[in-house]
Design a protein around this nucleic acid. Sequence first.
RNA 1: GGAGUCGGCCAGACAACCGCGACGUUCAUCCGAGCGCCGAGGAAAGUCCGGGCUCCACAGGGCAAGGUGCCAGGUAACGCCUGGGCGGCGCGAGCCGACGGAAAGUGCAACAGAGAGCAGACCGCCGAUGGCCAUCGGCGCCAGGUGCCGCAAGGCACGUCGGGCGCCGCUGGAUCAGGCAAGGGUGAAACGGUGCGGUAAGAGCGCACCGCGAGUCCGGCAACGGACCGGCACGGCAAACCCCACCUGGAGCAAGACCGAAUAGGGGGACCAUGACGUGGCCCGCGUCGUCCCCGGGUUGGUCGCUUGAGCCACACGGCGACGUGUGGCCCAGAGGAAUGGUUGUCCACGACAGAACCCGGCUUAUCGGCCGACUUCUUUU
Length: 127
Amino acid sequence: MIASARHPRAARLLTPRDFAALKSGSRRLSGPHLSAQVKANAGGGARLGLAVSRRVSKLAVQRNRIKRITRDSFRRHRHLLGARDILIIANPPAAAADNARLHAELQQLWQRIAALNAGEATGTMRG
RNA sequence: GGAGUCGGCCAGACAACCGCGACGUUCAUCCGAGCGCCGAGGAAAGUCCGGGCUCCACAGGGCAAGGUGCCAGGUAACGCCUGGGCGGCGCGAGCCGACGGAAAGUGCAACAGAGAGCAGACCGCCGAUGGCCAUCGGCGCCAGGUGCCGCAAGGCACGUCGGGCGCCGCUGGAUCAGGCAAGGGUGAAACGGUGCGGUAAGAGCGCACCGCGAGUCCGGCAACGGACCGGCACGGCAAACCCCACCUGGAGCAAGACCGAAUAGGGGGACCAUGACGUGGCCCGCGUCGUCCCCGGGUUGGUCGCUUGAGCCACACGGCGACGUGUGGCCCAGAGGAAUGGUUGUCCACGACAGAACCCGGCUUAUCGGCCGACUUCUUUU
């Protein structure tokens, strides 16, 4: 379906249960500033969760910035990502990275996720 | 124009595209879609004070503990604000101050220093008074040489001289007894300060001014100020205990309320009273009568609380002011895995600190820079 670049409520991980489900059987990817946990979901398209702890930055402004950049990038690339739940975890260096760097890294991350085939995406059968 | 003080305000702008949340409205069986409109701060921060609100069997008395601390106002309240007083800083506009009581009591002061609380004399000053020593003078007393004359007693001369002792007086002293605390020195602090007089040297010993005072009068609601009077004692520390005055019940929106679902009214044990529990420091008082402990099972979803409020903006009136009263107008985030943004372009003074989480009033801390008003001061010109 086509590619609306929107980010409705349905495209988010909402409950603690959603987050707990990612803890087991997910595929992990990591970059210098951001890491991801990915797992196939029951359908309907990609859903995004965010984890930016106070360990990344004590300033709420910085944490908000990272989340906003991530959401904005996610909605633009959501049509590429298939039916997966994705948790993006910020690493401490992310607070020092500017917006352009975060955008670039996110774009690479989406491409790596999209490259995973359906079998791998479930994570459980990895050899 | 330069330097500065106080108060207020702003917090890159504009455009395009793509997004997010609330509300209103239209469409739609539902998912949702269109349109309109709104969408972080002056500190949203630290959580340091004060309230509202909610629950705790509702809040009475006493003790303890904590807080505040010049006075008077303002306020819902405050540790905030305004005005005033006092002290300090600044040429000034102004700024800063835990700023009640030390004669209610207890206590503290290391080191240094002679001495640290009803103190003390190291260096030093004096030595008036009473001694001592010395010089000079006066008076008195005592002892004595040589020569000549004389038998001797004795006389005369040198000589109204010299010596010794005592008393009195003058002057002097690296002096003793003693006097002093001015000056030096120690200290955070040394038992009022400065000056003049005074004195042997000194000293509130006297005087003037300042300071001080359980005194009197006057001004002020008061803090306090002024005048007069008094005398120089009554040191400092209360962010030491303490005294005095005033204030404070506890916990916090994960407060708390409702709806729905699900399971159970389970098993075991302790106590039937001068008992247990409720008051989250204690006691009294008050209230409740079955209460408490252990084991096992179930639930941790939704709605409300949640933004109209000690609200904001004008104008008028009262007040020095903080602020109050009245009239009119406005609606100004409400999320909750958590919205309020991203990218690009143009411009310039090249953009700081930083993100609401129940809500207000303050304080404090962080902060690139800019604008406005009032005032001070210096310089130039007229």
